[in-house]
Design a protein around this nucleic acid. Structure first.
Lengths: 148, 148
DNA sequence: ACTTCAGTTGCAAACGATTTGCAATTGCAT
DNA sequence: ATGCAATTGCAAATCGTTTGCAACTGAAGT
């Protein structure tokens, strides 16, 4: 039920082909994204980047995220009330459940829901370009479950 | 398929009961919200408010929106890449389809999708506090349809 | 109607997230 | 190596929104 961080061996080559120049800061950021199992925001990426190369600036992180987003290498998610968070693209499409207490992001997918969305849009005379489905919730503390 | 702007005759009274003092600017803002068939953002509400009472400030609009949201009188929607937009509460729960070309917001509801969301959350061990389902699309320009 | 005072306002400044201008730097094709 | 456009870091600017503060006002009491 989880992603497998599919880092193709020549990710950089692909990007270069897409017209992205592989600079030092971008290398660092890419490596961070590749390893990230969570959905870090720009500041978090910046912090992790600085650990590797102290010269990197936050602006560069933002610029790089925008660039990668444009090339389709990453997805940007603007969850409720927080900064944008990113995840490498290339994983199957999925939606998100956000743990309101921890901020943890859990991925899920429902083909059935996707279908229903299509139907609804069609009925309204629209083509879906993309959608956003986010569930905001708390760990169930029902019987039989140890409290978190 | 649309809302009926359910303005209970004593809306102000209700608010007062909720501990909200009915001031001049709030009266104006409330009247705007009651009439709004669209989903205006704070600036738009401010503009409409100024037409009625030129003394109103944008801060007051923001403060009032936050207050009304807290009391449950309105809902705030942070659609993609734009400022928050508001709508009076009290209408049946619904999700939104946003026209990418016009920004127009179309409301819809699918009990089936709601159910599926519940199921998914439950399977993941969560209780849904609330969710966000937004479809971003364009008017279908398929055969047989006049271009819009 | 008059007083009272906490709640509310307008203004301007502060805010957090993000973008941008610019001069200095650096990939990478030659 | 060389050259130049792409990229960088920095600081300042931007956008939407919030906040401190002194002046004002709703509404409860007289």
């Amino acid at each position: 039920m989880n992603q497998a961080t599919p880092i193709r061996p020549d990710y950089e080559g692909e990007l270069r082909k897409a017209g992205v120049r592989i600079t030092r800061p971008r290398k660092v950021i890419l490596s961070i994204l590749a390893e990230a199992g969570d959905h870090p925001d720009a500041l978090e990426i910046f912090k992790r980047a600085v650990e590797i190369d102290s010269g990197i600036s936050l602006s560069t992180v933002y610029r790089t995220m925008k660039l990668l987003e444009g090339v389709g290498a990453i997805h940007r998610h603007a969850f409720e009330g927080g900064p944008s968070r990113f995840e490498p693209a290339g994983v199957e499409h999925h939606d998100h459940l956000i743990d309101l207490d921890t901020g943890q992001v859990i991925e899920f997918h429902s083909e059935r829901i996707e279908q229903l969305q299509q139907e609804i849009a069609r009925e309204l005379g629209y083509d879906i370009v993309h959608h956003r489905l986010e569930l905001y919730g708390r760990k169930r503390r029902g019987k039989g479950l140890r409290g978190g």
